[in-house]
Amino acid sequence: MSLFDKFRSGLSKTRQAVTEGFNRVAASFGVFDEDFLDELEMILIQADSGVQVATKLTDSIRERVRKEGKVDREYVLGTLKDDMLAILETKPFRPDFEHLNVVFILGVNGTGKTTTAGKLAASFQRQGIKTMLAAADTFRAAAIEQLQAWGERAGVPVISNTLRSDPASVVFDAMQSAKARGVKLLIIDTAGRLHNKPNLMSEMEKMHRVAAREGETVGAVIHNFLVLDATTGQNAVIQARAFNEVTTLDGLIITKLDGNAKGGIALAVVEDMDIPLVFAGLGEGIDDLAPFDAELFVDSLLPEA
């Protein structure tokens, strides 16, 4: 399945809802007037885009319609697409693999961090980049086993310690091991933490300190990726803000974009934070984590012009 097909099929339900809504209001109003814009706003909110983005997008259409006097369906759709693309950007994760790159996989509970870490490792390992996984989620029962299972499938070594051990010590071990083995990409799976828990957030800071200190000698570059569950509502925005406060986020990974997700939350978070989406989880298979592509995403969300 091509990447486009994956985005397409993942967002098919949302797209169907958006298309139906769009056509329904187009048919019932005939012209794109104020009531139409209200309905359009509603459709966008229903796709989890949040009130702010929905209002921004509809305001832009209102403005352009007023200025240019065009009210046909293609024009409105085109405007919508342009504006969505102005929010999202395609910024692939292409670090310099001459050095060691350390990727922290962060996020609240249940967003799919471990799975994402496993899939990322598999994908880069296959591209010929020497990859390693570290199980720094020492809190959730069986998280270590889960990551080890992923490591086996991907053929990537997994550094781990026992349940309840200090996650920073796992990071330390992994850094030593990565340096010794000449690893180019170390992916660290961390415990899910609700962003309003200060203790867990300070534990995260400690892991960062260890990685930065140990990585200094080899010029390691640290990347922080926040994993967001696409079925999450507006709290995703608050999650991104909170994580970005304690650490600088370099990218967002949106998971579970297939099936029951609405997807609009991607717009809400990127609009609010201006942090690029780097990967999208489009299915449960090991190959279903794809580099995020804004154009494909928007095309999958909106009806055909």
Binding site: D48, T231, T232, N235, N260, K262
Partner: peptide, 12 residues
Amino acid sequence: VDAMIGQEAVNI
């Protein structure tokens, strides 16, 4: 149900 779920909750 996760408290953070968005608009899809009802359909699910």
